[in-house]
Amino acid sequence: MIGPHLLSLEDLGTEGIVEILNVAESFAEVERRTMKKVPALKGKVVATVFFEESTRTRLSFETAAKRLSADVLSLSVASSSVKKGESLKDTLKTIEALGIDAVIIRHRSSGAPLQATRWLEDIHVVNAGDGWHEHPSQGLLDAFTVRQAWAQAEGVDAASTGSELFQGKRIVIVGDIAHSRVARSDVLAYQALGAHVTLCAPATLLPPSVEGWDVEVTTDLDGLLADVDLVSVLRLQAERGSGECVPSLREFTNSFGMTAARTAKLPPHALITHPGPMVRGIEIASEVADDPRCLVTTQVHNGVAVRMAVLFLLLSGGSMAFTDGEGS
């Protein structure tokens, strides 16, 4: 069973991830309708509490909640009491007192959403990105996007394939892995689904814990290009200090950027993803970003259906989700 919270993809397992992807397919169908709203979460209140800037994740979660007919409270930290010195705990307790059902948190500290689950009673907590740790909904929507693209290429219904299409696939995640919570969630999602994952980054941009991950690590991007099914490009996170980890942006682009020349070396069926925001000319060349094999806008589009699935699965289980415990 999924829930009561979504903190890390580690908690879901293959079955949980596949279930979310399948329910998201149902919501993708809802999104193709003229009338895109369903009453599934009518009467529920969802709060988005973002302690870091975000446009797409916040808008995506809020759109998802509204499409499910939930009411949305949106706490903007810039104009809140946090600026007056209120602690995370007090901010959350205040929101709890308003009678909400779920809180979607983004915070610069890894583990903040987990801490929130200890303070809040009977409120579902969704991690929308915590520090360098995880961004589970992004990992899910990336997996959803590539599964859909592969299913389309093979002419099969994505929801009926489970994790089948990931078996034996070779996925390269390239760029600033150390500072990327997306990288961690992507690795967990792709591995749980059965793909072979290779990380490609300069040693300075690899997380200290990479030995514990069951992945291949290399610094030779060119050597990987001939035999790959998906290249997941990550942004160089200047705001988290990755600027000091590379000698120069130009050198980073030369060795690890997804340039037009590198894209030309990919097999014709290979796909490219990027979680956004893209910095054109650094980690991805402008013409590559606009290549039809680059799924970046599809990813944003799919984000809504995947987040609808997450909110629906967490909030539709009733209070059972809090008492059932594991494995029920």
């Binding site: 069973m1 279930e19 399948n22 329910v23 149902s26 599934a40 979460l41 529920k44 699965l313 909030l315 539709s316 289980g317 009733g318 059972m320 989700a321």
Partner: peptide
């Protein structure tokens, strides 16, 4: 919905 899990 909310009383028991409902799956599409």
């Amino acid at each position: 919905i909310g009383l028991r899990p409902v799956l599409p």
